[in-house]
Amino acid sequence: MTTLLLALHVLLAVIILVSRNMLTAVILLAVLSLFSSLLFFILHAPDVALTEAAVGAGVSTFLYIWIIRKTEMEIKP
């Protein structure tokens, strides 16, 4: 289960790095944070899991989307 979650982390990180749309990258970053929270919970650290879910999926996603609204949505090649 842990190995599966770690492989999913790597896969999601590669997709985030190569995606050209900023909004897709930020939403996938929130999904990555959610899976990271699940991994912390499996590894018996529920405090860290709560922090990761609240900060990673909630507040930081909001801040990133805010920055995207003020700048460009697409990466120019």
């Binding site: 405090d47 609240a54 909630g58």
Partner: peptide, 14 residues
């Protein structure tokens, strides 16, 4: 139980 000052504060803020 799991939780505490920082986690509760971030949840309220969200």
């Amino acid at each position: 139980s799991p939780g505490g000052g920082f986690q509760g504060g971030v949840t309220i803020a969200s």
